[in-house]
Write a protein that binds this DNA or RNA. Structure first.
Length: 258
DNA sequence: ATGTCATCTTAGAGATGA
């Protein structure tokens, strides 16, 4: 059933760092922010363990791709959900799910971390990004689409609190940035959220060392949208990173008209 | 930057990943 009506749509993405541990906060957040389509990452549960009941009680259909302890991505929609794909060819980890939600094709991604430039996970990450680009090449840019999630890449130097602190680290290397930029170059817009309290719209702050309170963060979560998704507002929901037992990521919330 | 957090193994702290 297509219950979408022409007009505004609210889209969001959030790496929840365990949907089980975050469930009370997630449910409260869904009620408060009420996105029409939300992409989740790091659900860290098997499909059979996903908390479908309380989320469906809020009016959402959910497509989840989980493999247990690590990873796990989902799309929740209250404007319809169909044509679900969890297949990123050659990459069986649960890091990709795509679905049609009303007027939109929506994709939730959890790009591999990479760990270190001399770790096998680093070339794996680059290959993963290349395969993600290949999924776009099979599509038409004219169809409204949002690809969103935790990309584990800071696209520009300003997307980390201090580029000097990242010398030799992953997330800021040229090949990683090229992998992310290739998605944008296909025809997607990097929907930049307006800054909150600080001057930069970071989306992730390490749990340790008071990084959040010092605003020592990174912009590694993105909403990438086709131009037919006309954005009226986009913000990082820093409130969701505060208080007791938060995720280490904050959601990005985007209001748009298709 | 490293002061945390979540999960699993397997019974209580350690390993792993981020």
């Amino acid at each position: 059933m297509d219950i979408w009506q022409a007009g505004d749509v609210r889209i969001a993405t959030w790496n929840v760092n365990s949907v089980g541990a975050r469930l009370p906060r997630l449910l409260a957040w869904l009620e408060e922010v009420a996105p029409d389509v939300v992409a989740l990452q790091e659900t860290k549960c098997a499909d059979s363990a996903f908390p479908h009941l309380p989320i469906s009680a809020l009016g959402y259909e959910v497509a989840h791709n989980g493999d247990g302890r690590w990873n796990g991505v989902a799309i929740a929609s209250r404007v319809g959900l169909s044509d679900v794909s969890t297949d990123l060819p050659g990459h069986p980890e649960a890091r990709y799910v795509s679905a049609t939600c009303g007027p939109l094709r929506a994709t939730s991604v959890y790009v591999p971390n990479g760990r270190a430039v001399d770790d096998p996970q680093y070339p794996y990450k680059l290959g993963w990004l290349a395969e993600l680009r290949a999924t776009l090449d099979a599509r038409a840019v004219a169809q409204p689409m949002v690809m969103m999630g935790d990309f584990n890449v800071a696209l520009h130097d300003e997307d980390v609190f201090d580029i000097a602190a990242f010398a030799g680290s992953t997330h800021v290397t040229e090949p990683e940035r090229a992998g992310l930029q290739a998605l944008i170059d296909w025809g997607l817009v990097d929907v930049r959220a307006r800054p909150g309290k600080g001057d930069r719209a970071f989306t992730y702050w390490d749990y340790r060392a008071g990084m959040f309170h010092k605003d020592l963060g990174m912009r590694i979560d993105y909403v990438l949208a086709t131009p037919s998704v006309v954005v009226s507002d986009a913000y990082v929901d820093r409130e969701a990173r505060k208080g007791k037992l938060p995720s280490d990521h904050a959601p990005i919330v985007v209001d748009a008209e298709i």
